[in-house]
Design a protein around this nucleic acid. Structure first.
Length: 472
DNA sequence: ATGTAC
């Protein structure tokens, strides 16, 4: 595995058979994975062998090992040229993403009520593996609404306001969801988890705006220094997981029929224009809508708590997912092409002027929400014109230790105390769960953001610091 | 990420 430095923050993995395109890694020297100890760049090269892939197999500065595709990876295939879709290119947590809410309150105003807010959020947010949900859906019709219409359905049922949808990617729902392509088992798992945080790196965090880098853009996004915010990071729970499992299995079998060979079984895929490809994209869109409704319901809960304790409101800044495949139009070799863009641990970052942006954000570009590791900063970024990698950027800090390694490194320590020392109030989370998510298990989020900006993928708007966190 | 297992 040889890396050629093309420009600062951009490295190339030269194409060699059976790669169809080169690999491109956006990173600083310091953030580059150690090719001796880390297989994530081999995964970047393996993705480059997929039928129909165009331009390059991309890795973001937060790249790390994933199932088949690396996390922090972007790959686009040309639909008309037999391009494939791969469940491993989306990940198990379909449409996992981030939502940022801005309070009409500053940090000083929150301080006296912080414990009450945290107790309220901790008590009202269903979290952890399995157990509990905001919305106990009964029968298939409510769940169908969630799968077909995502946040739009949640708002229609009273869990939010119309303006929320203007600030959601795709206005809160992907259009081509096919609940019929979702297995009964996935539906069964999903029915009891609508409006729940989950576990692992998912969280609901109370934050404050610690620094603003671009005052005008921050103002347009509705953000100002010292302001209190709530960030929600969660996904499609057991439903998305089951859909990924179902379709990996189905595509493993289908590949022989399409005469597709991949260097790793975990890269199972099928042509976008095939029954398997169509069904996966329909099921994936249903899971994506489930994830968006999930974040909408947790928003509702947070608003109820804030209203009760502070008397104030929470306005949606933006909601964007970082695990998804989307059919998009991009210029490739001077031609407009219909592509299936896989973003796995990578965030869409639309440039200023893009038609899919809400009218009031059109001049400044899409808000990009980057959660840091627990107890560290999170960032608000903005899309920039002419960015590479199909308008995509990083999604977070990126793991450097496995969960097991992180738990071992925390042995004999008290993670609760360490977070208290950082002035972060914690609600929920097992000792082990916290140990797995300590900052030492992740790259430095600020270094990741510097590299994405240096690579021309996006630009900084604001840095947020955590005050309190609700964990699974 | 995940009813941390089919």
């Amino acid at each position: 595995m040889e890396l050629v430095e093309e420009s600062p923050y951009r490295f190339r993995i030269d194409r060699r058979d059976p790669m169809r395109v080169p690999g491109v890694v956006f990173a600083s020297e310091a953030l580059l994975p150690d090719v001796g100890a880390d297989r994530s760049l081999e995964q970047v090269a393996a993705v480059a062998t997929l039928p129909g892939i165009v331009d390059a197999s991309f890795a973001m500065p937060d790249v790390h090992l994933g199932y088949g595709f690396p996390i922090g990876g972007v790959a686009a295939t040309d639909v008309a040229a037999g391009g494939v879709v791969s469940p491993g290119g989306v990940g198990f947590d379909i449409s996992c993403g981030v939502r940022l809410l801005a309070a009409d309150l500053d940090l000083a105003g929150l301080r006296p009520r912080l414990e009450a807010v945290m107790d309220g959020l901790g008590g009202a947010t269903p979290r952890g593996a399995g157990r509990g949900a905001v919305w106990h859906v009964t029968g298939r019709s409510d769940l169908d609404g969630v799968l077909r219409e995502g946040s739009r359905y949640a708002v229609q049922r009273g869990f939010g306001v119309g303006r929320d949808l203007e600030r959601c990617e795709d206005h809160g729902a992907l259009d081509d969801a096919d609940p019929g392509a979702v297995s009964p088992r996935a539906v069964e798992r999903g029915a009891t988890q609508v409006g729940s945080l989950g576990s692992g790196n998912h969280f609901l965090e109370v934050q404050s705006v610690a620094e603003v880098y671009d005052h005008d853009v921050a103002t347009t996004f509705g953000l100002w220094p010292g302001q209190v915010c709530v960030m929600i990071h969660c996904g499609s729970r057991g439903l998305g997981h089951q859909i990924c499992t179902d379709y990996v299995r189905r595509m493993e079998k289908a590949m022989r029929r399409y005469d597709i060979q991949v260097p790793d079984r975990q890269l199972a895929c099928a042509p976008v224009e095939s029954p398997e490809g169509h069904d996966y994209l329909g099921a994936m869109a249903a899971a994506a809508n489930y994830a968006r409704a999930n974040r909408q319901l947790l928003t509702h809960v947070a608003r109820v708590v804030f209203r009760r304790v502070t008397g104030g409101n929470l306005d949606l800044v933006y909601d964007v997912s970082h695990n998804q495949a989307k059919i998009e139009t991009h210029g490739v070799d001077g031609e407009r092409r219909t592509l299936c863009v896989h973003r796995k641990g990578a965030t869409r970052a639309l440039p200023p002027g893009h038609p899919d942006l809400p009218a009031d954000l059109c001049d400044v570009g899409q808000p990009v929400l980057i959660p840091g590791s627990m107890g560290t900063a999170s960032y608000v970024l903005a899309g920039v014109p002419g960015a590479p990698a199909f308008a995509s950027t990083c999604h977070g800090a990126g793991r450097v230790q496995s969960r097991k390694q992180a738990v071992r490194a925390e042995r004999g320590q008290d993670p609760h105390r360490q977070l208290a020392a950082r002035d972060v109030a914690v609600r929920g989370a097992s000792r082990r769960g916290l140990a797995e998510e300590m900052p030492a298990a992740y790259k430095d989020i600020s270094a990741v953001v510097e590299a994405t900006e240096g690579a021309g993928l996006c630009r900084k708007v604001a840095r947020l610091m955590p005050i309190g966190v609700v964990k699974g």
